[in-house]
């Protein structure tokens, strides 16, 4: 039992981070915080991959004379390098959008944004009526 909880502690960390990240994305009203949550969520997945690739006691996968050298699986690391780049791009785009939203609406709070859209809609509606 204890083994199941603490023996795989690295997976637990991945799991906890993942849930925290997803929770932030879903629950927070601030567009900025959502992006933070998303970044956390993605990072947890990076950790998941690294965990797969890491072999206990293994070194970096560099070719040496010792044939029996234990080394970690390089492929997940390479994959995650790609995923990190993608994650950075996502965050950057998200932040850029948030800046633009702030300019257009004067707020980055979801509630205020929808309220402001509603006000605009009603204004237009009354103009049409006139």
């Amino acid at each position: 039992m204890i083994d199941q909880i603490f023996g795989v502690w690295n997976y637990w960390i991945v799991f906890i981070l993942m849930m925290i990240g997803l929770y932030i994305v879903i629950s927070k009203k601030s567009l900025l915080k959502k992006i933070v949550g998303l970044a956390l969520f993605q990072t947890s997945v990076f950790l998941l991959y690294i965990t797969f690739g890491k072999i206990a006691g293994g070194t970096a996968p560099i070719l040496t004379d010792n044939v029996n050298e234990i080394y970690s699986n390089p492929l997940p690391h390479v994959l995650i390098l790609t995923a990190i780049v993608v994650g950075v791009a996502t965050t950057a785009l998200g932040l850029a959008l948030t800046v633009r939203i702030n300019k257009a609406y004067g707020s980055i709070n979801e509630n205020e944004i929808s309220a402001s859209d509603l006000v605009e809609y009603h204004k237009k509606y009354h103009e049409v009526k006139k």
């Binding site: 994305v25 998303l38 969520f41 993605q42 996502t90 998200g94 939203i101 859209d117």
Partner: peptide
């Protein structure tokens, strides 16, 4: 229409998830 920003943002978040 400024709503495009919000639409893009939501698309981004959901798509990334």
């Amino acid at each position: 229409d400024r709503k495009a920003l919000i639409a893009g943002y939501n698309y981004l978040i959901l798509g990334a998830v």
